[in-house]
Design a protein around this nucleic acid. Structure first.
Length: 463
RNA sequence: GGCGGCGUGGCCGAGUGGUUAGGCAGGGGCCUGCAAAGCCCCGUACUCCGGUUCGAAUCCGGACGCCGCCUCCA
């Protein structure tokens, strides 16, 4: 069973689930007003890996991640472009899924959209008002944080300390600077819905409570997202559920930031790299491998150097895949261990990997284990122990498949001219005409091929 | 001010009170006509200062440096 660091308890804890054999996970998704950057890629990859791992170990995972399609930023973007909010949201949501697909992030089981849950949100806000946990103000409805005794549970701070550092712009109508908007009264030209407490639109923190409880039910297992959502977003979700008297997430997970030099990558600092820019110049698997090679709670730095480092490591994996003709696992399909019967050596590798993964998702350890198996597979093959080699190689493919990283045995398109040149080279080599053979090799390299000598002569692949 | 975290060999990046993380790069060797791929060997690192201990990079205390959260943010 997976043991995972829980933000609320500040300790690694067994992920005890509400229902035997099943795991219900909610991951806070993007607000679709811009193209995604590396930080979005990280949280998507981290929790995609968690989902895959739980599935691999035999659990039935219900994975939900939302799209926030109504928000100040979407409204501002639409206004600046002179288009509708729905157009902006639709465009960036399409970009989001296209990018996720390239990263190999599997589609969630459910993708709730905020605009489709407004009625449920209105009902929740009414209930909060009725329970005295919210109050009306000219600019909308606020949540009264003082109504929740343990407000600050995730931040590990009480109201006094939180207030001491508060930088939030305060409204004269707020009872506390920490009170947050559940409902924002309609302004001219902005999207708005009817509600008993006035026309307007929902606040961000209300969406996720309503949608997570709506799709996963009370007391669902794991709620996760980037570390910057811990406070106030997740705290505020929790507070609302608490005030509604509805059991919320049993477990909280937060991933670390992507760093740029010494700073967190963020929109406000303007130091972000978009995923599109990264994927235009690198193998999409390189970012996944980079993410896997550091612990999910640690900060990571993504640079041309670390990306190319990962690409070279991928080349070794792909070489193994070609040598043993290994299948490309992962992608949209989530692998289960039971679907991949292997021999005793591979089993031992996967068992070792499981111990590491179950220990708070120790992906760096798991990757190290799989690379050791890679070396052992090649060594066994070099010694002529084919069965052992094949079994170990299979462990590598299955192990990385469980992490969502597909090996690529494809040599790429080899055209007829290249095939001809390779045949000529083999003929020259047979005649020990090394000068001619090397000329032909140079020619193939110039044409963009990697040339290797296999047991049956020249082996080509696209470089 | 409060809270959370970090400081590891050329680079990235794990981990454990005493024994090889792993990857990339580099050096040597095997293989090869030469390469490539693959295999074998090699670095003996853990911010600093105290303390605990037979023994600490790993535990405790302190110092220094750095990051994040307490508006929006993955």
């Amino acid at each position: 069973m997976l043991r995972l660091y829980d933000t609320a308890r500040q300790a690694v804890q067994p992920l005890s689930t509400r229902d035997e054999g099943r795991v219900a996970i909610y991951v806070c998704g993007p607000t679709v007003y811009e193209v995604p950057h590396l930080g979005h890629g990280r949280f998507s990859l981290v929790w995609d890996v968690a989902r895959r791992w739980l599935t691999f170990t035999g659990l039935d995972v219900h994975y939900v991640s939302n799209i926030t399609d109504v928000d100040d930023k979407i409204i501002a973007k639409a206004a600046s472009e002179g288009v509708g909010e729905a157009d902006v949201a639709a465009r960036y949501e399409a970009d989001w899924w296209a990018t996720m697909a390239r990263l190999g992030v599997a589609r969630p089981d459910d993708v709730p959209h905020a605009t489709a849950y407004v009625a449920e949100m209105v009902a929740a806000i009414e209930e909060l008002l009725a329970r005295g946990a919210a109050y009306l103000a000219p600019e909308g409805v606020y949540f009264d944080v003082a109504s929740v005794p343990d407000y600050g549970l995730l931040a590990h701070q009480d109201l006094v300390d939180l207030r001491a550092g508060a930088r939030v712009e305060t409204s004269e109508h707020k009872r506390s600077p920490l009170d947050f908007a559940l409902w924002k009264a309609a302004k001219p030209g902005e999207p708005a819905w009817e509600a008993p407490f006035g026309r307007g639109r929902p606040g961000w923190h209300t969406e996720c409570v309503v949608m997570s409880l709506g799709l996963l039910g009370e007391g669902f297992d794991l709620h996760c997202g980037g570390l910057d959502l811990k406070f106030p977003h997740h705290e505020n979700e929790r507070a609302q559920a608490e005030a509604l008297g509805r059991p919320f997430a049993r477990h909280w997970g937060h991933n670390g930031f992507v760093m740029v030099g010494e700073d967190k990558m963020s929109k406000s600092l303007g130091n972000f790299t978009t995923l599109g820019d990264l994927l235009a110049t690198s193998d999409p698997r390189a970012y996944r491998l980079l993410v896997l090679r550091s612990h999910y709670r640690s900060p990571i730095e993504v640079s041309p150097a670390t990306i190319s480092d990962a690409e070279r490591a991928l080349a070794r994996l792909d070489a193994l895949a070609r040598r043993f003709d290994l299948p490309a696992l992962a992608g949209e399909r989530l692998e289960r261990r039971t679907d991949h019967p292997v021999g005793t050596s591979a089993s031992a590798v996967l068992d070792a990997m499981a111990l590491q993964m179950d220990d708070d998702l120790d992906t760096p350890g798991a990757v190290a284990t799989l690379f050791e198996a890679l070396g052992a597979a090649n060594a066994a093959a070099d010694r002529g122990e084919e069965d052992l080699a094949r079994d170990l190689a299979r462990a590598v493919a299955v192990g990385f498949g469980a992490l969502g990283l597909a090996l690529d045995a494809d040599a790429g398109e080899v055209d007829d001219v290249a095939r001809e040149l390779a045949a000529e080279r083999d003929a020259a080599r047979a005649q020990r005409d090394w000068t001619r053979a090397d000329q032909l090799r140079d020619e193939l390299v110039t044409r963009g091929y990697v040339v290797e000598d296999g047991p049956n002569g020249t082996v080509l692949r696209r470089g």
